[in-house]
């Protein structure tokens, strides 16, 4: 019994991990990344202002490209820092 529930919990955990690991832009089915959406962009950028790599955030390749332009636009308009702290 105990082992059975343990396995169930493990499966649940794995499922959760899976859903968490996927790209957030794929999850919410977005077409475009807006430079004005500072809250989202801030999550994709380190304290120093560097864009996080795909390995860390799990972002899909074509979204990473869009993210790049969005972050650069936001930086130009001083919504995000070029160099933080």
């Amino acid at each position: 019994m105990a082992s059975n529930t343990k396995i169930k919990n493990l499966k649940k955990l794995l499922k959760k991990r899976e859903s968490r690991n996927k790209c957030r832009f794929t999850r919410s089915r977005v077409e475009y990344i807006d430079y004005k959406d500072v809250q989202t962009l801030q999550k994709m950028v380190s304290q120093q202002g560097k864009i996080y790599g795909r390995k860390r955030t799990g972002t899909q390749a074509h979204f990473q490209r869009k993210l790049k332009t969005a972050v650069k636009r936001a930086r130009f308009l001083a919504l995000l820092p070029y160099m933080g702290r």
Binding site: S19, R24, V30, E31, Y32, D34, D37, T40, K43
Partner: peptide, 17 residues
């Protein structure tokens, strides 16, 4: 319209995850 909707979706997603 699309950007406004997507913004909400992303906010909702980050709240969930």
């Amino acid at each position: 319209d699309k950007r406004a909707k997507e913004r909400e979706l992303l906010a909702e997603d980050s709240r969930k995850h």
